[in-house]
Design a protein around this nucleic acid. Structure first.
Length: 630
DNA sequence: CCACCAGAGCTC
DNA sequence: AGCTCTGGTGGC
């Protein structure tokens, strides 16, 4: 690498470069570069440089290079590139395209895209070789593999992988990747010499991840890379195939900005690098389903049988719960099936997706819910010890004696939770088997359960993970409608796929029974649940019809923009003037604002948002943008 | 007297 | 968002 010697180029022949610098802004920054760093007055696009930014310095990537003033409106004082990191461009053509696609799809800047897709060492300036181009341009095919049985899919993957083509196999969670890695090591379908060339990509963690990148970039002979989401950009040489397992999982969507769907990234990466793409799972995601019905048939398991039972909540006995307005039903069929499962030495799981004693506390006089003083989210009531905790930030406070809003004395609890369910379960179950409330999903709890005598587990959706390690004979959904109640446009798919998962997940799905306590037995989004291994066809047909009518994703993209209230108002006006469909749910005098946009014209929206992401706006702060594509 | 930290201020 | 510079605090 070459460092700036600090001297001015005395002959005055100084040129400029545009550099993408990681930051929340979308602007590329212009710098001078002296002859000492660039003898030809030119730095190739894709070369990393260290540049001064504000008080410090950062590593960025050259995007353009040329004489002063060429295609650049900035007329202020320019600073100098302080160091050229790479001798040759370091981002492949495919990688540049992938980064650009990411920016367009998620309405973010190039710097944000680089941080999301590349290991942190890249932007520290460490030696780097990007994922390769295909040797010969290839056209990857897309295929699908849906089978409700986990074991059946694993076997199919193993058979496919046994041809030794360089393959990337990615799971939504690392634990599942580990399980598949162990499966491959034992699989009779894998040739011995190939087994030695399977690499389990490490779980998130910057150091381990960078070590894995270096190992793969050095071309150590790995042919199959198995990993969780952190392996999505793994630099596998000559990658010919990408397998995305459990592709409909909502876990593919990241929780941290830039919020994106890692499965979508993998699909596009496969296309750019000419690798074939195999999407697999228990059921398809909306986009995969649409391709599937337009393209060809799916694989599927053949097992059917009476696995699922609907219990009409309106008919079920619902004992009242002390201190809580709503009741919880523990129906007769649920108790009977639970006792049966326990009697035959299997585990039973009852799922209620609300922790604590009650999900919300509301003032009966003013109607306001008790909110967290720190973050403003709803507080839930926990009974032992008696207190309220915040659903989102975890803050805890003593049980309020009066309404914080109107000082009213009548606070009432609603939506009973797991703590309230436990005494009901104890009273209802006849079996002497233990009853355990599962508070977390950590490894320790799981290990304790794996070694214990089978019993009844009361837990949230996280408890479904137990199906992977112990024999679960019954899953009972205490309030199945609750899953579909959130206002999100994808609430119904989440509900459907959770229940679908409870039918099929893990090692004992063949004999498992599932009971749904619901107000709409087998109706609406629940249609198709009882139709056997491809019941999701019924679900998607109805769901996509409705989404098309409402112009919701995947037929349109949904964009959420957050900023301060005045800026949101200005943006809303301008976007509406440009013909965008916008709405804002804000209260009139709120400080911060939210703007929703529903559109197909993402490129145009990007251009409209560009002014708000110029670096000169840094002091006013940048809006936060989230995009939904499905 | 200096190590450590929170907050301010800056960004071609 | 980073980064560094500042000034206050607290440990010895």
């Amino acid at each position: 690498m070459t460092r700036c010697d600090g001297q001015d180029a005395s002959d005055g022949s100084v040129s400029t470069v545009s550099v993408t610098v990681p930051g929340p802004w979308w602007t590329d920054l212009t710098y001078l570069v002296g002859r000492d760093l660039a003898p030809d007055g030119y730095l190739a696009p894709g070369v990393r440089v260290r540049v001064p930014v504000g008080a410090g310095s950062r590593v960025g990537v050259v995007v353009r290079s040329g004489e002063r003033g060429a295609g650049d409106e900035y007329d202020g004082e320019l600073r100098r590139v302080s160091e050229v990191v790479d001798e040759r461009p370091i981002l492949s053509d495919a990688m540049m395209k992938l980064l650009r696609w990411f920016c367009d799809a998620h309405l973010c800047g190039m710097g944000t895209a680089m941080k999301a897709l590349l290991p942190s060492a890249f932007l520290r300036g460490e030696p780097f070789g990007a994922p390769g181009e295909p040797m010969l341009p290839r056209v990857g095919v897309v295929s699908f593999l849906y089978d409700s049985e986990d074991e059946a899919r694993f076997e199919r993957y193993a058979r496919i992988l046994s041809d030794g083509e360089p393959s990337l196999v990615i799971f939504p969670i690392h634990l599942a990747a580990r399980r598949f890695h162990a499966y491959l090591a034992d699989s009779p379908h894998m040739p011995m010499d190939l087994k030695e060339r399977i690499f389990l990509f490490p779980r998130n963690g910057a150091k381990a991840e960078w070590a894995a990148w270096k190992k793969l970039m050095s071309g150590d002979g790995a042919l199959i890379v198995v990993g969780g989401q952190s392996a999505a950009m793994a630099p596998l040489r000559g990658m010919a195939r990408v397998i995305v397992e459990d592709e409909s999982s909502h876990v593919w969507r990241t929780l941290r900005p830039p919020i994106h769907n890692v499965r979508g990234l993998l699909s596009y990466r496969a296309r750019l690098e000419g690798a074939s793409l195999l999407l697999g799972g228990r059921m398809p995601s909306p986009r995969a389903y649409m391709r599937l019905v337009s393209g060809g048939g799916a694989q599927s398991g053949a097992r059917t049988g009476r696995k699922i039972f609907f219990v009409d909540l309106r008919m079920a006995y619902s004992p009242s719960i002390k201190g809580v307005m709503d009741s919880l039903a523990v129906s007769e069929p649920l108790v009977r099936e639970t006792d049966l499962a326990l009697a035959s030495g299997e585990w039973a799981i009852w799922i209620l997706d609300r922790r604590g004693y009650a999900g919300e506390i509301v003032c009966q006089e003013c109607g306001a819910p008790v909110k967290c003083s720190r973050c403003g989210s709803a507080m839930r009531w926990e009974s032992s010890p008696a207190r309220v905790t915040c659903v989102s930030c975890g803050a805890s406070a003593p049980l309020p004696e009066e309404c914080p809003n109107c000082a009213g004395r009548l606070l009432s609890a609603h939506r009973p939770g797991l703590e309230a369910l436990e005494p009901l379960a104890r009273a209802a179950i006849n079996s002497p088997a233990p009853i355990v409330s599962l508070e977390g999903d950590d490894e320790r709890t799981r290990a304790a359960i794996e070694g214990a005598r089978p019993g009844l587990i009361l837990g949230t959706r996280a408890a479904l993970a137990l199906c992977d390690s112990v024999k679960v004979g019954l899953v009972g959904w205490i309030d199945a409608d609750g899953e579909a109640r959130s206002g999100e446009h994808d609430a119904r798919v989440r509900a459907y796929s959770l229940i679908w998962e409870s039918l099929w997940r893990g090692i004992s799905s063949a004999g498992r029974r599932v009971i749904l306590q619901t107000r709409r037995p087998g109706q609406d989004w629940q249609r198709g649940l009882a139709h056997g291994p491809q019941g999701w066809r019924t679900f998607w047909r109805d769901e996509l019809k409705e989404r098309r009518e409402l112009s919701m994703p995947p037929f349109n993209s949904l964009v959420k923009i957050e900023s301060n209230a005045p800026q949101i108002r200005v943006m809303a006006e301008k976007l509406e003037a440009s013909g965008f469909e916008c709405w804002s749910p804000d209260e009139p005098n709120a400080k911060s604002g939210t703007l929703w946009v529903r559109t197909k014209r993402l490129a145009e929206l990007r251009r409209a948002l560009e002014p708000y992401f110029q670096i000169t706006r840094v002091r006013r702060g940048f809006p936060a943008v989230v995009v939904w594509h499905e």
